[in-house]
């Protein structure tokens, strides 16, 4: 793998680095980039530049800072207060709450909607987000009407991880090992049963049925994230965790 170019804010992306100038697909600019009309692209964040020629996309990888809501992202948020027909949920601390309509749950009607207490955790998808408005959430797929795993999270414990770790944990199972370098959850799941939900906002919820299991899984995730553990180190960690149980 050739070393990616490290960019600083204000750096102009030279046309030679653009994925495929001849592509018929429109060029997609991902996080950290800025288009200054007519045809200048500059960096707005610092970090390595990544390109995907197939999708004709480029972006800057950046793991720092606060989570900025993007439509389609899965997040773990906590209920703050409820109003007549919506719950207001906090995605990251100290930001304005997002709206979760009370009917945006699977099979919810005026009488069957779930009741959430302040502080309850919800696994939701961001349906609408934009810089000028508070984000909106949903716990149901708008097409199928199914929850698809979304909804209130009962019990368990929630941990904070880095945004980069959250992104790696959300990769599809096939890619998690190859692209994300993660074998931790797979390896743990071979021996113990637990449920896990990952929010793009840097939160991981684990429910292992008992304090011991939940704690062991949660702590292993944190250790992998903070220590930047590679695949082999993760296997060693898993062996150690399992011995401790």
């Amino acid at each position: 793998m050739s070393e990616p170019t490290i960019l600083l804010p204000g750096d102009t992306i030279p046309p030679t680095l653009l994925p495929s100038p001849a592509s018929t697909k429109p060029l997609t600019l991902g996080p950290g980039l800025r288009h200054i009309p007519p045809s200048t692209i500059t960096a707005a964040l610092s970090g390595p530049l990544h390109t995907d020629p197939r999708k004709n996309a480029l972006w800057i990888e950046n793991n720092g800072g606060r989570y900025i809501p993007v439509a389609g992202d899965l997040v773990i948020c906590s209920m703050h207060h409820s109003s007549v027909d919506a719950y207001h949920c906090v995605i990251t601390p100290y930001t304005a709450p997002a709206t979760l309509p009370q009917l945006a749950f699977e099979g919810a009607s005026k009488k069957t909607r779930p009741v959430l207490a302040p502080g309850a955790l919800v696994y939701a998808r961001i349906s609408v987000a934009g810089k000028h408005m508070e984000p909106e959430l949903e716990c149901v797929h708008p097409g199928t009407g199914k929850a698809e795993g979304l909804g209130p999270l009962k019990g368990g414990m929630v941990w904070d991880v880095s945004l980069g770790m959250a992104r790696r944990l959300l990769l599809p199972p096939g890619k998690m090992r190859e692209v994300g370098g993660l074998v931790l959850l797979e390896a743990l799941a071979e021996k113990v049963r637990f449920e896990v939900a990952v929010g793009r906002n840097g939160r991981v919820w684990v429910e292992g049925g008992s304090v011991g299991v939940t704690l062991a899984v949660g702590r292993a995730v944190i250790e992998t994230d903070e220590g930047g553990l590679g695949v082999e180190e993760q296997r060693r960690l898993v062996a150690r965790v399992l011995r401790g149980m």
Binding site: A120, L121, G156, V211, G212, L215
Partner: peptide, 28 residues
């Protein structure tokens, strides 16, 4: 001034349950 971030219900309950089982979250 934004208000202090509060712990989620799940976290509160879990911390207390763990303490009842003689466990602290950071293993101390």
């Amino acid at each position: 001034m934004p208000r202090e971030a509060e712990l989620s219900l799940n976290a509160r309950e879990f911390i207390l349950q763990a303490l009842r089982e003689n466990v602290r979250l950071d293993g101390r």
